[in-house]
Design a protein around this nucleic acid. Sequence first.
DNA 1: GCCAACGTTGGC
DNA 2: GCCAACGTTGGC
Length: 152
Amino acid sequence: MNYWLFKTEPDECSIDDFANAPDTPVVWEGVRNYQARNYLRDDVRVGDQVFIYHSSCKDIGIAGIARVVRAAYPDPSQFDHSSIYFDQKSTTINPRWIAVDLLFVSKFPQLIRLDKLKTLATLIELPLVRKGNRLSVMPVTCAEWRTISALT
DNA sequence: GCCAACGTTGGC
DNA sequence: GCCAACGTTGGC
């Protein structure tokens, strides 16, 4: 089993959206970065655990945990003309972008703030805390997962 | 809202 | 295939 961190803007999809419908899978669509796409396509598998990270908002940090319930499939939003994620260059035969489905696991009693994560020497390799990082789907090592989990 | 850092595009 | 210009991300 692998561990991951997925970024989301809570205005669009927050940990509360998961928590309010714990039996409804969340379609993780809209990833439009090739490195992140490759992780989704090649390495994210059913049963993997995912930290849900809130970005571009007031309270920045890891808000809870979800798990993967459906592995890579073509991101439906790339074919949807009305979606901001529509991609004219994508075809059903050769889709560019990948989605996975997630299910709620837990919401942390307190958000683990980004500035807290930045203070931990064991997390210096985590792309999230590295300068200029923009990766929205990133691997988390087992040791990093344990370090972060211990903060809750 | 600013802006540094990064990814993508497209002319050559 | 280089690289300047442009667009986007995301913390502050």
